[in-house]
Design a protein around this nucleic acid. Sequence first.
DNA 1: AATGAATGAGGGTTCATTCAT
DNA 2: CATGAATGAACCCTCATTCAT
Lengths: 202, 202, 202, 202
Amino acid sequence: MPDHTIQQSLIADQRISDPRSARGRLLTSAARLFREQGYERTTVRDLASDVGIQSGSLFHHFRSKEDILKAVMEETIILNTEIMRAALARAETVRDKLRSLIACELESINGQTGEAMAVLVFEWRSLSDASRAEILKLRDVYEALWMEVLSALEEEGRLKADPFVTRRMLTGALSWTITWYRPGGSMSLEDLTGEIMGMLGL
Amino acid sequence: MPDHTIQQSLIADQRISDPRSARGRLLTSAARLFREQGYERTTVRDLASDVGIQSGSLFHHFRSKEDILKAVMEETIILNTEIMRAALARAETVRDKLRSLIACELESINGQTGEAMAVLVFEWRSLSDASRAEILKLRDVYEALWMEVLSALEEEGRLKADPFVTRRMLTGALSWTITWYRPGGSMSLEDLTGEIMGMLGL
Amino acid sequence: MPDHTIQQSLIADQRISDPRSARGRLLTSAARLFREQGYERTTVRDLASDVGIQSGSLFHHFRSKEDILKAVMEETIILNTEIMRAALARAETVRDKLRSLIACELESINGQTGEAMAVLVFEWRSLSDASRAEILKLRDVYEALWMEVLSALEEEGRLKADPFVTRRMLTGALSWTITWYRPGGSMSLEDLTGEIMGMLGL
Amino acid sequence: MPDHTIQQSLIADQRISDPRSARGRLLTSAARLFREQGYERTTVRDLASDVGIQSGSLFHHFRSKEDILKAVMEETIILNTEIMRAALARAETVRDKLRSLIACELESINGQTGEAMAVLVFEWRSLSDASRAEILKLRDVYEALWMEVLSALEEEGRLKADPFVTRRMLTGALSWTITWYRPGGSMSLEDLTGEIMGMLGL
DNA sequence: AATGAATGAGGGTTCATTCAT
DNA sequence: CATGAATGAACCCTCATTCAT
């Protein structure tokens, strides 16, 4: 099942917004603006004018500015979790599963959902405690997929470091790619995935 | 030359502030508050009351709020660059030099200057273009120390991946430790340094 | 002619709304909400949801929010004026007429139209000048009924104070009952009417 | 002790604001504007321009707009309670005490604090629950002064109606004078007080 | 009539910065 | 140097009203 189909199915289930809907276009704009300028420095007027509506109209779609931030994070985690789950299902060996995880995460960070993923990392403190708790639940599901594979790999004796530490290192290293990796350059995401597998000795 | 002495000498040269001076205490508070709440969500009143003065008095020490942010970043880079330079001088082999770099960076992120380092990473977008350019110059000096060692290591044929990519991965992985590593737990920074050297196959 | 029949006849003449019509139900809701929360703090959405329609649909029944306020006031004065006129016709002596006026006004304030009457008193300043002028005309008719009786009583030498002052005192005292009198308690409106007549020495 | 001296002493005790201070002038303006236009229709910009400052400067003196409303009510009750207490001390017979209460309340409603007293009556619903509770405590003290005198009068057998009902009637009748009584006309407040005593048969 | 998305002016409030004292 | 009242622009959000469907 290709990523596009997964997205369609999540839209049908109303777990994420249709990117062509008013709400969806708003979230796309928000992800970009929050990523470029930061959540606090982005005004609701910036956001409204970016999607071509008046600032008051935002509040027909979201109860508050923070609600928009939460939705950006929520929808990107939901989508990427499902994409990753599908990729894991296609992989056969545990090693392949890890490669899939790395490839998916790199794609999520440097592809279509890159801006939203950066927001997830950099605007974490702008969430209210209540919203943070909700997002953490989704994040736990996502992280569980990683830990399952890393633990299996450790049991096979093929992981040099502690799975927990390894995941932390990978999280940092992969999310940091947003600051320097440029798709379309001499190195493809495929290449990068290989390089990282190499560093892990796999 | 111990770190403490390096600091003394930088203070004497007026390249960084004495932490006991009004300016120094202000920067320490700012680093902590900016790290905890974010730069935008920290008001100058928060800052002033944290050091026990009135908000108007801040502006006798700094021209603007952004000036405080810039100073936090500036001074932490200057200090850590010098500490790293001294550590490199003490190391004999290239491999030892790399270990020193990793150890220093981990220490800078998780030790005394941790809050300021986190600010450097997470509040980057709050800098004006002019300030950003100034900080970038200092950062280039710092990064040059890293690249020199990684290139030497590559020439020795002991580095598996591209030095540039390796540094990027390390930057992400090391800076991310701020979000999960807890000093005083079962793993010392020494242990962590070793684990990372291991991952690099060194 | 009982009050109910007076109401029917005013509805037939289209001087007030049928309480079962959309417009009538809206005015009943409006009176209650304006009284409980105040006119300014009541939104048209509150009002619409209270009658089970969408806010946009309100404007098929009334030109503006203020128009609703005006109608609440207008219809309650018209109704109570006619009820009072009928009561006066039934009373024989001048003293009985005064008792009827007091009883009617107490009933209007603490009975079915109580909410609307409270709105009339407390939301006066929310009317535009134009609306205020219209309501004042109706109020003059209502007040003329009172002054006629009080003047007659003075001519009979049975009123201790000036009719004008007496009416003002009664207006204040009677309208204030809305804040403390509870129907169904130990004192009936009949009792209260008697008590007030007593205070006037009648 | 003249009213002016009572005010001075309350200012010295910081129970009310000096009318010449920034805070005091603000409260005077607020009372007038809230009375003329209503609390909700008065914007903080109206208020600020009325005292000749910028809207943001209001918030150096009061935490919120509602805080201003609360202060208007609070200070006027405190002042009038003390003025009334002093007047009671000067009166000798119970009948004189009641006359003093009526005279004081008429003065409070139609004199210097008239606007604030009107706000107290008409803007009650604009207070938050918390503020309302605070004001109610002060109001209870004020009302206790009334009930004490009315109860004493009843024991002397000189009060025709129930003290509770009498007070309610008087509250309504006296507060309503704000809507029609004009000082400087043919009837003085002294005259009006006499007229009311007469109505009560005293 | 009814809908409900959109409007856009205006609301209360915040906050970095200034400056007379 | 320190104060703290004052500034004024900008912020998020509300809401009566409109209008295409």
